[in-house]
């Protein structure tokens, strides 16, 4: 079994109104000095098999075909 964590984040320059709202929430809680918050997504994926390089290329294909929208998002794949 291969375990991986995929992280999807908004590209620089793409407005993140949810991140802005979270910034407001943190500041309301009294956390000062929060310069910015960007909200993203995390996917924990378990794959059958032991071939880590095949898994990595499959995971990248999954990101490009579904998990990330490359118009607005970047992704990274970490095998655990």
């Amino acid at each position: 079994m291969i375990r991986a964590r995929i992280t999807v984040t908004l590209k620089n320059g793409v407005l993140d109104p949810q991140g802005k709202a979270i910034e407001g929430g943190l500041s309301a809680l009294g956390f000062s000095g929060v310069h910015s918050v960007r909200q993203g997504k995390v996917f924990d994926v378990e794959l059958d098999g032991v071939d880590r390089s095949a898994a990595e290329s499959d995971l990248k294909a999954m990101c490009e075909k579904l998990l990330a929208n490359l118009v607005i998002e970047n992704y990274s794949v970490d095998l655990l």
Partner: peptide, 17 residues
Amino acid sequence: LLEAGLLPGALMRNASL
């Protein structure tokens, strides 16, 4: 249609949330 790649761009959460 955007997600299918038949049109360019993306639709995001309304700026007002």
